Amino acid sequence: VEALTGFNGPWVYALFYLTFVGIHLAGVGEALKVMMVISGLAVLAIIATAVALIANFDAANLFDVAVTNAAGANEFLPLGWYGVWAALPFAMWLFLAVEGVPLAAEEAKNPAKDVPKGIIGAMLFLLFTALLVVVLVPAAGGANAMGASAVPLVDALNATGNTNLATVVNILGLAGLVASFFSIIYGYSRLVFALSRAGYLPRSLSITTERKVPARALIVPAIFGFIASLSGEGDLMLAMAVVGATVSYALMALSHIMLRIKQPNLARPYKTPGGVVTSGIALVLSLIALTGVYAFDPRAFLYTVVLFVIGAAYYFGYSAKHLVAKSADEEFAMLADAEADLAASN
């Protein structure tokens, strides 16, 4: 918004929160339709930028960053292996929140088929668009210049003489940021709703409106998000989000391995290709990416650990005694007892 209009500050953040939380409060159907439109505009911006920059592709621009004295540094890796390590949080951000797709399971017609198709399709498309941005933008505008840019797509177009398209892409690129913001609002609301309904968070957060929208699960986290935005620490919050994401990825991978071992006969409408080998690789990569946050900004790592400690204290001090849903182990134990009783009666 600042690059486009010159305006920035708390009132811009407040306007965005009010607008898009308001759309989500209107209903999930309305919200997802809007999400599709703004996501389409964001994709259009990336494709238009890629088409315009192909003619200005210069491989030499990819290597115009001065080589440092870091370990492993060379023309290809000017900041050495440390640079790769510290860049991992930003690489993660290209795909962050795609794990929000399964949160729509309760609102999908056929979750067993629709959710895997959705998340696999999303990952493949994100990989394609990520390559376009990471390769074409610095190859046209210069890696060193783009590394210092707050709006790299726009600056790359301006640097190559595509000023009119740069203005259009700036507007469409804003839609891309909105698409990310919009989808994260959807994801956190469903996550808070599920945790509240199960008793892990205060039960009042799972109250829904007549339109079946978890209003408090939308509004309360938005208030926290707005307050955090007032700090102006965008990079810090990005890195903290990556810490949370990588921890969750690691735990999901570990849970998948444990379920395959402990519950080999569990009904599985969708099976992960490669099984525990795939999730084992994911577990290792998640932990490596987690350490990359520390390399980039130790504050992000430490602040997120503090939040985890607060959450753990709340869980063990209060919510563990007020759970509505049983834990997975308790559910499996009940199932095993029921099966044993059935076998004994026969």
Rank of each mutant, 00 (worst) to 15 (best):
H24K: 08
L25G: 08
A26M: 14
G27I: 00
G29C: 08
E30H: 14
L32E: 09
K33M: 11
K33H: 08
K33G: 03
V34K: 01
M35G: 04
M36Q: 13
M36G: 05
M36D: 09
M36I: 14
I38W: 00
S39W: 09
L41K: 01
L41F: 15
V43T: 12
A45V: 10
A45Q: 01
I47Q: 02
A48F: 11
T49I: 07
A50V: 09
A50E: 03
V51W: 02
A52F: 08
L53M: 11
I54K: 07
I54H: 04
N56M: 01
N56A: 15
N56E: 10
N56Q: 10
D58S: 13
N61Y: 07
L62D: 06
L62W: 04
F63Q: 06
F63M: 13
A66S: 13
V67L: 09
V67N: 03
T68F: 08
T68C: 12
A71L: 13
A71W: 12
G72W: 01
A73G: 06
E75V: 15
F76D: 01
P78R: 01
P78L: 06
P78A: 05
L79Y: 15
L79D: 11
W81D: 01
W81G: 14
W81H: 09
W81L: 14
W81A: 12
Y82T: 12
W85N: 05
A87G: 07
A87C: 12
L88M: 15
L88Y: 01
P89I: 10
F90P: 00
A91G: 15
A91P: 00
A91K: 00
L94P: 00
F95K: 05
A97Y: 10
E99W: 07
G100W: 05
P102T: 04
L103W: 05
L103K: 03
A104N: 08
E106R: 11
K109I: 12
N110S: 14
P111F: 02
A112W: 07
K113H: 10
K113E: 14
D114N: 10
V115M: 13
P116T: 07
P116D: 11
P116W: 03
K117D: 12
K117L: 14
K117S: 12
G118T: 06
G118W: 02
G118L: 04
I120R: 10
G121M: 12
G121D: 07
M123D: 01
L124Y: 08
F125N: 08
L126R: 01
L127Q: 03
V133I: 15
V134A: 15
V134P: 02
L136S: 11
V137H: 05
P138M: 06
A140M: 07
A140H: 05
A145S: 13
G147P: 04
A150V: 10
V151R: 08
V151I: 13
V151S: 14
P152Q: 09
V154Q: 03
D155R: 04
D155W: 09
L157E: 02
L157C: 03
N158S: 07
A159I: 03
T160V: 11
N162Y: 06
T163F: 11
L165I: 09
T167P: 00
V168G: 00
V168T: 06
